[in-house]
C-alpha cells in the first residue's frame, strides 16, 4: 500500500515515533462533543515536552490551551479532562467560535 498523507500526519503514529526518539509525549483526545464541534469524537492532538504538536482537537480554537495543559500532564503524569465551549467563562479567550462544546481527555504516554 502506498503511504498517504494520512499516514505521515497520523497523530498516533507520530506519538509512537516521538516516544521512540525518547521524547516526552502527551495525547489529547476529543471524548465528547455537543452542538457543532469542529472535530469528531476520537480526534487526537499529540504534544511533546517542548510544545511541538500534531493533529487537532478543534479547528485551531483551543489547541493552545490544550497544549499548555499537556505540559502539566507530561510533568505530573496525571490525566486531565478539559472542557471548552461558549458557556465557559474562558470562552471569549479560548472558546469555540462555532458555538459547540467539547470535552478533551489529556494523558501522558508512558
Amino acid at each position: 500500500m502506498n503511504e498517504t498523507a494520512d499516514d505521515v500526519l497520523d497523530p498516533l503514529a507520530i506519538a509512537e515515533r516521538w516516544m521512540d526518539d525518547g521524547r516526552m509525549v502527551a495525547l489529547a483526545t476529543v471524548v465528547e462533543t455537543w452542538g457543532s464541534a469542529p472535530r469528531p469524537v476520537g480526534s487526537h492532538l499529540v504534544i511533546d515536552g517542548e510544545g511541538n504538536f500534531h493533529g487537532s482537537v478543534s479547528g485551531g480554537c483551543v489547541e493552545g490551551a490544550v497544549i499548555s495543559e499537556a505540559m502539566d500532564v507530561i510533568s505530573d503524569g496525571e490525566p486531565r479532562m478539559l472542557e471548552f465551549g461558549v458557556a465557559d467563562e474562558t470562552a471569549w479567550r479560548v472558546g469555540l467560535s462555532c458555538g459547540g462544546r467539547i470535552r478533551v481527555y489529556v494523558e501522558r504516554v508512558g
Binding site: 498516533l12 495525547l27 508512558g110
Partner: peptide, 14 residues
C-alpha cells in the same frame, strides 16, 4: 497510556 498499548494499537491499525 501505556507505550506497549500505543504500539499494539498502531500495529493493529497498520
Amino acid at each position: 497510556m501505556d507505550p506497549y498499548l500505543l504500539r499494539k494499537l498502531n500495529r493493529e491499525r497498520a
